[in-house]
Write a protein that binds this DNA or RNA. Sequence first.
DNA 1: GTGGTCTAGACCACT
DNA 2: GTGGTCTAGACCACC
Lengths: 118, 118, 118, 118
Amino acid sequence: MTSYNASVPIYLQVVHSIKEKMATGKISPGDKLPSGRELALKYTINPNTAARVYQTLEQEQLLFTKRGLGSFVTEDKSKIAAIREEMAEGILEEFLAGMERLGISSDEAIEMLKKRNQ
Amino acid sequence: MTSYNASVPIYLQVVHSIKEKMATGKISPGDKLPSGRELALKYTINPNTAARVYQTLEQEQLLFTKRGLGSFVTEDKSKIAAIREEMAEGILEEFLAGMERLGISSDEAIEMLKKRNQ
Amino acid sequence: MTSYNASVPIYLQVVHSIKEKMATGKISPGDKLPSGRELALKYTINPNTAARVYQTLEQEQLLFTKRGLGSFVTEDKSKIAAIREEMAEGILEEFLAGMERLGISSDEAIEMLKKRNQ
Amino acid sequence: MTSYNASVPIYLQVVHSIKEKMATGKISPGDKLPSGRELALKYTINPNTAARVYQTLEQEQLLFTKRGLGSFVTEDKSKIAAIREEMAEGILEEFLAGMERLGISSDEAIEMLKKRNQ
DNA sequence: GTGGTCTAGACCACT
DNA sequence: GTGGTCTAGACCACC
């Protein structure tokens, strides 16, 4: 997590942070995730909040829990690919929205990118 | 009372918000800005923090202040144009950085944009 | 408590005093400046006012600040040379202005200086 | 009086201000000066302080008082000329002192003046 | 320890 | 009314 944003619930911030680690390969399919208590310490959040983080990720089938063993990143690589695309999509949206706020069209934005990339 | 917020300082957030209004033409050269006290009320910040906002913008020569009259957007349109470019640049940077974090190159990012734009 | 003093703001007085030390070589490029709290004690001003002093000098790129370490005189000697000239210029202006108020021209003022210097 | 300086007694500041008016011809030999009470109002000082101002100027024979009529600028033009020189001398001293603080000699200072005067 | 930010409230100068 | 300055005291982040 880079910067704290007051309007987004903490548990979603942590969810996002973990998704990013999955999407970027910092954690891989099958990897064990820290325990709820560890997560709570790491992000200095309430254990209940930590539990909610894993609960949310589990609902999205991005991790599975083995009773007594802990939580693990899903083995389903397509899921991982999906969140990667989803995050890319989000970044793209944000980019276009920011540009539009400045009155810059998608086409112009693409031109700027190309120029910069030369 | 309100606990300190770690992320981007409030005064810079407000500075950014005003810059955006300048860059997008929502406020124009010569326009009077709200008084420090009004700004403080509008953003529910302390008058001193509001003062710091205008102080920062004045240092960047984006506004000028007439004692006892208020603060006004600079008449220098080139300054306004400059911040528009600067902000676009910033958004662009952030976009590329986010994409890179996902392991997506500039070229790929441009392709994604094009596809989306069709 | 201490009643407000109308003349030159304290923080600018201190700024000037530090600039003079830079210009005269009493403090050199890279030197560590006293901490904000020390400065506050030294000049018996509020820590916030002391902070403003360094903040002002930093904006003029005459010092740089390392978080948690302190503030240091800029390594850029040209900046130092520039303020020396700037201060000399200011003194010169004040001199000529004072003489003019007495109805003494620049030429006459130079003559007086020469005479005195013999 | 332009700027308030805490270290100089108020009555001397006012004395200086009046001397300047004499030296620059804003008030002329024989002119009537404001009454003590008027002076006190004008500079928002205590009437006793105002009295001390005139007392000081009278000691220097720069003004004389006619009982029941008020205070008047001395008719002795040489006195006026003297304070003009005295003030010029003071400005000159201050100039050289300031330059010396910057490590600039009298000769160099004169050179700077000449250059500027071209 | 360092600097950075924020609040609360005061007084002043200018118009 | 406006902005400008200053104080007092708090909390946070970095080292």
